[in-house]
Simulated assay, not measured.
Amino acid sequence: MEIERRVGAAGRIELWGYEWDLTEKPAKKTGRKFLGYEKPVQDQAPVVREAICWSYGRTLGNIAVSSEDLLGLFPGKEGDDAQLDCDIVEAGKWRNGANRWWCRTHQRHWGTKGDVAGAEASGRVQCTNHDQEMSYVVDPEHVNIQEFAEVGIWCSMPPALTHLGPSKPRRPKIHVHIRQKPGEEKVVDRDFKALSLHYNANDNLFGNAEITKVHLTPPSALEFVLALESGKTMGCINCRDCGYPHLDLGDFARKPHAKHLCGNCGRDNTWSKEPIASTPLKPLHDQFSRANNYVDVEKEINLDDYPGQAFQVWASTPAVLWTAERPQERGIHVHVYKDKAYDVDDTFGVVRYQGKVLDRAQLLEAMVAATIN
């Protein structure tokens, strides 16, 4: 079966499948069947409301996943159980010359014989990941970076150690500190599931003045922080076809490469000058992090001095975004609780527990191992 595109009512692109009747001279198209609609690569109208959605375990993604059409499909304000319609756009051709499409929602190509047969049977153009459950936040928190004196954003991972032993595994979150003025109390100090980060249009981070925000999801934050910590080569490459910034996740984020598959249009014609892991967080981090240097903390604490008190311990990690003028602290962060309030909330260079000095590298390994992604 072959597929052709037609302009239908209101200018929508229709996808029709057909066969060739070779008994006719000349051959004629036969058995035409309507398969569904193709969607434009670029959204045609501004989105007043928005939803950020993503899937764990991917190797690439588009952190600016938002669509007016999807808002009514989410079962709640946020969750991990959304099943969303496919968002199919034209993506060039397969190696055999057949037309190829890309599902932006589920990050999957469409157009094989099996895909076409499935569309014939169901009357719907769906990729093979169409029933995949997605994580989502509807109307996410917005942070305008330049409205505050200090904005700090980290990937929140499970503690490496607690008074009860190793931490229970969980998915990553996004932790945010915001201060109106340097040195003042934080006006925001909590975890979020996803964020929309805004900046001034004249900063033009991606070569496109219309892009003035970056959607931050836990998988993208995790990969970025791990790359910063390990010193992997990162950059941000824009798709040569649709212009969207490219995001690598999973294995692609941990193994720099030169050829990049676009999560927005599904084309793989974009090459970087050198092997990199691409993420839109890189230009954001470089532009607005005023103090991308670190100071090793020298303070010490002995957790054995707090018998019977609950505690949590993390290895400090680089910030996704750090707009304060002072350097970031590198060490081991400790919470000790008393009567459900903080008795200790600070970063230390030396932490002792049960007579031993804790190792920051080992703590970080434990945090990553307990992070489900």
Rank of each mutant, 00 (worst) to 15 (best):
G8M: 11
E14P: 01
L15R: 04
W16G: 00
G17Y: 12
Y18A: 06
W20T: 11
E24N: 10
G31N: 14
K33N: 04
L35C: 12
E38L: 09
K39D: 06
K39I: 01
V41A: 10
D43P: 05
A45Y: 13
P46H: 10
S66A: 02
E78F: 04
A98D: 15
R100C: 11
T112N: 12
V116H: 01
A119G: 09
A121V: 05
Q126G: 01
N129S: 13
N129H: 12
H130M: 02
D131A: 06
E133A: 14
M134L: 14
Y136W: 07
N144H: 13
E147L: 11
V151E: 03
V151M: 02
P166D: 00
I178W: 07
R179I: 07
Q180L: 07
K181A: 08
S196K: 09
N202Y: 13
N204E: 11
N204H: 12
L205W: 05
A209S: 14
H215I: 00
E223A: 15
A227R: 09
T233A: 13
M234N: 09
P245Y: 14
G250P: 03
D251R: 15
D268L: 10
E274H: 02
E300M: 14
I301K: 00
N302Q: 04
D304Y: 11
V313T: 02
T317D: 03
V320A: 08
A324Y: 02
A324E: 11
P327E: 11
Q328H: 06
V334W: 00
V336A: 04
V336M: 03
A341L: 14
A341M: 13
T347E: 04
T347C: 12
Y353A: 01
G355F: 07
L358R: 15
R360Q: 07
A361D: 15
I372Y: 01
I372R: 06
